[in-house]
Amino acid sequence: MDTLFQPYRLNASLTLANRFMMAPLTRCMAGPGLVPTEQMAAYYGRRADIGLIISEATIIRPDGQGYPNTPGLYSAEQIEGWKKVTSAVHAKGGKIFAQLWHVGRVSHSFFHGQQPVAPSAIGLEGTLPRMRDLSYPVPRALEVAEIAELVEQYAQAAANAMEAGFDGVEIHGANGYLIDQFLHHASNLRDDQYGQTPENMSRFALDVVDAVNARIGGDRVGLRLSPGAYAHMEGDTRDRGVFDYLLGELNKRTLAYVHLGIFDDSLTFDYLGGRASDYLREQYDGHLVGVGNYSAETAAEAIKADRFDLIAIGRPLIANPDYLARVKKSEPLVPYSDTMLAELV
Rank of each mutant, 00 (worst) to 15 (best):
Leu4Lys: 04
Asn11Tyr: 02
Ala12Lys: 09
Ala12Asn: 14
Met21Tyr: 01
Met22Tyr: 02
Met22Phe: 06
Ala23Gly: 02
Arg27Gly: 02
Ala30Tyr: 03
Gly31Glu: 04
Gln39Val: 12
Arg47Asp: 08
Ala48His: 06
Asp49Thr: 06
Ile53Phe: 03
Glu56His: 10
Thr58Val: 12
Pro71Leu: 09
Gln78Asn: 12
Glu80Phe: 10
Thr86Arg: 06
Ala88Met: 09
His102Met: 07
Gly104Val: 01
Val106Phe: 05
Phe110Ala: 11
Gln114Leu: 13
Leu124Arg: 01
Thr127Arg: 01
Tyr136Ser: 11
Pro137Cys: 11
Glu143Ile: 01
Glu149Ser: 15
Ala157Gln: 14
Met162Thr: 04
Phe166Cys: 03
Val169Thr: 02
His184Glu: 07
Ala186His: 03
Asp192Ser: 12
Glu199Lys: 10
Glu199Asp: 13
Asn200Val: 05
Asn200Trp: 06
Asp207Ser: 10
Ala214Asp: 15
Arg215Met: 14
Gly217Gln: 11
Gly218Glu: 15
Val221Tyr: 03
Pro227Met: 14
Ala229Trp: 10
His232Asp: 13
Glu234Pro: 00
Asp236Arg: 07
Asp236His: 12
Leu247Ala: 10
Leu255Cys: 08
Tyr257Phe: 15
Ile262Gly: 08
Tyr271Leu: 03
Arg281Met: 10
Gly286Asn: 14
Thr298Trp: 12
Glu301Val: 14
Ala302Tyr: 00
Ala305Tyr: 07
Leu310Asn: 09
Ile311Phe: 13
Ala312Val: 10
Ile313Tyr: 03
Leu317Asn: 05
Tyr323Phe: 15
Met340Val: 00
Ala342Arg: 07
Ala342Ser: 08
